[in-house]
Design a protein around this nucleic acid. Structure first.
Lengths: 197, 197
DNA sequence: TCCTATATTGAACCTCGTTCAAATGGAGGC
DNA sequence: GCCTCCATTTGAACGAGGTTCAATATAGGA
């Protein structure tokens, strides 16, 4: 049975994650500030450090949620396409990734902006979340390129993910030089269509 | 004729760029600090703000140099390969990009870590430097894919650059989960070999 | 040489993340 | 119900960092 203290802490923890998520979603990772968070949560600054070792870990918890939403959205884009050619399924996932990133730019940016050097501990679920995405990509890739060894399929899977990520990342960077959405999707389509031709 | 003051300023400007470049090369962008820079340069903190509006602009100047070196290294990788097949030239450039990034990780990371939101002014030469790289990529791509419209060639050029960038970026991220160098180069080779097959 | 406009300086300001001595509050015993 | 003791919470204080600006020093001309 959780003690009064434990439930209070757990409530605060959840409240901080939700408030922090709103901040990151609306203003990005750099806007996550201990003092303003404390005001919003109606607690003291120190209270934050009672439930998280530091702000970095709060950000990680928030990124965990974002990763989950991202995975669901990409998975959702292919789950309905069982009889669709593999190449089109690949493109659909790439475009779903672009959709998520452009609809949740600040939160998605935070996924890769966070300083992984801190504490040298990359949460295992961070890599696990990526693996889930890779799983979805592997099937169509293996179908399209039966000539490749399993190792090369794996490299191609990771290479394709990184490629789409790179196109979206550089494409969404900065409004001023930002590439129009339809140009980004054309790049993704062109690159992914090269596979298995 | 430059006044005494002007030459002093110019000297300090150059000194700061060189000292800052060493800092970024060895310890990365976050290690660029006004106070320690002032000590190293033997000047006051305020003096930095006499020659640069803020540290952001000093970092931009340093990134300008890094971009130049990067461009030269990639260009150098293809300049000797005039009779080599287009596909191999593409791969050579991709691997040259990887070489530069892994030999100059901190400085190369700073190119994309810098906060472009500040002041909303992306220096024109930042984009110009990228265009130089694109120029090198365009020739082999146009050769390999004569079926594509000029617009699509352009999209493929930018898409391929972004792809290689994405593979290198995610591959070099963090020692712990860092991908071995030969795996990164295999991903690049696989992706680029898909073009024009 | 002296004088004034210009340039330089660095202490002080502000904003952060994080800490820790002091105040608070809960739980068990009487 | 009340008291005591220990865990919990608090928020002022610390240290680090970018940036500013009144005070100081220095050109450069008369």
């Amino acid at each position: 049975m959780p003690s009064k203290t434990e439930t209070r802490r757990e409530n605060l923890r959840q409240r901080l994650i939700e408030l922090g998520e709103a901040v990151i979603t609306e203003q990005g990772l750099p806007a996550l500030k201990a003092r303003s968070l404390a005001v919003e949560a109606g607690c003291s600054v120190g209270a934050i450090y009672n439930v998280f070792p530091d702000l970095h870990h709060l950000a990680l918890a928030i990124n965990g949620r974002t990763f989950k939403r991202l995975g669901e959205q990409v998975a959702g884009a292919v789950s309905a396409l069982t009889d669709t050619p593999a190449c089109e399924r690949l493109v659909a996932m790439g475009l779903a990734y672009l959709d998520f990133a452009s609809e949740n730019t600040a939160a998605w940016t935070a996924l890769f902006e966070i300083d992984m050097a801190v504490g040298e501990e990359i949460p295992h679920w961070y890599m696990a979340a990526l693996e889930v995405l890779f799983d979805h990509i592997r099937r169509p890739v293996a179908e399209l390129r039966p000539d490749l060894s399993p190792e090369d399929v794996e490299f191609l899977v990771r290479g394709l993910f990184s490629s789409v990520h790179g196109i979206v990342w550089l494409g969404l960077q900065k409004r001023i030089s930002a590439v129009p959405r339809h140009e980004i999707s054309r790049m993704i389509t062109l690159i992914l269509s090269e596979i298995g031709e």
